[in-house]
């Protein structure tokens, strides 16, 4: 292994890591952020991109340099050097990736716990998916609607219900997603999650679990109100939950 400019290759890896990271961090990958979870997830993604850029750069530099340096001349029928391995190197490329993925796992776990921390003033909403429409019930206000209305900076505690097949709740700007499972609420189904919107405006709820012919168009408007008062005004205009609703709910939970 003489004549290999290891220091220069290492420099090349560092330079390529920096260049790749910078290029990959410029685009706004996940788009607009509109919940408290969004910046945390995006930051986690940025860390993953930087560590991945390092791994990618190592692979590209090793591959590119090898092809450049040891490409066989036409007519050269000789063999390469009979190297069978290098224990220290093999330990290194087992241990370093292990450390990288364990760091990513620990950081992911921290972000996950952070995302799922519940607040005491959360507003409960029951989200129901059916082919091919969403509906929303607010037990505290005793109203129902076919648009999701919430309040900026107030946590929403969502419970998912499905009437026919699987559906999935996704608001890309909030970075949260959860399937609606037929049979929920029930044992073994974790059908509730929390999200805290922190930007007022109108967004779109997208179904992301294939649910049949109308799957692509199964969407609902999401409105984040600036103030609780604004939400209350909207809530006052909505229809109450019909009284016969509790009966099937009681039957399915029994």
């Amino acid at each position: 292994m003489q004549g290999v400019p290891y220091l220069r290759l290492l420099g090349l890896v560092v330079a390529l890591t920096v260049v790749t990271s910078v290029i990959m961090l410029i685009p706004d990958w996940n788009g607009e952020q509109a919940s408290t979870a969004a910046p945390k997830i995006d930051q986690l993604l940025d860390v993953a991109i930087i560590l991945s850029s390092f791994v990618f750069s190592v692979v590209m530099v090793m591959l590119g340099y090898s092809i450049h340096r040891w490409r066989a001349r036409p007519g050269d029928e000789s063999d390469g050097a009979p190297l069978h391995g290098n224990t220290r190197l093999e330990i290194a490329w087992t241990a370093i990736p292990t450390a990288i993925v364990l760091i990513l796992a620990a950081y992911s776990w921290i972000v996950l716990d952070d995302m799922e921390a519940t607040a005491s003033n959360a507003m409960p909403v029951e989200v129901t998916g059916q082919q091919y429409a969403w509906s929303f019930e607010y037990p505290d206000e005793n109203i129902q609607a076919d648009e999701l209305h919430v309040v900026k900076d107030r946590q929403v505690a969502v419970e998912m219900r499905a009437l026919d097949v699987l559906h999935s709740f996704w608001v890309p700007e909030w970075r949260v997603k959860r399937d609606a499972v037929p049979g929920a609420p029930g044992s073994g189904i974790d059908d509730d999650f929390v999200v805290t919107p922190d930007r007022a405006g109108t967004f779109t709820l997208v179904c992301t679990e294939l649910c049949g012919l109308g799957h692509a168009t199964m969407r609902a408007p999401v409105v984040v109100h600036e103030t609780q008062a604004e939400f209350d005004r909207w809530a006052a205009e909505q229809e109450p939950i019909p009284p016969e609703q509790p009966q099937p709910a009681a039957a399915s939970s029994a």
Binding site: M1, S66, I67, W70, A72, D76, A81, N86
Partner: peptide, 11 residues
Amino acid sequence: LGTLFEAKIHL
């Protein structure tokens, strides 16, 4: 990648 090291790479 280690296998490519000091090899005779036929492309």
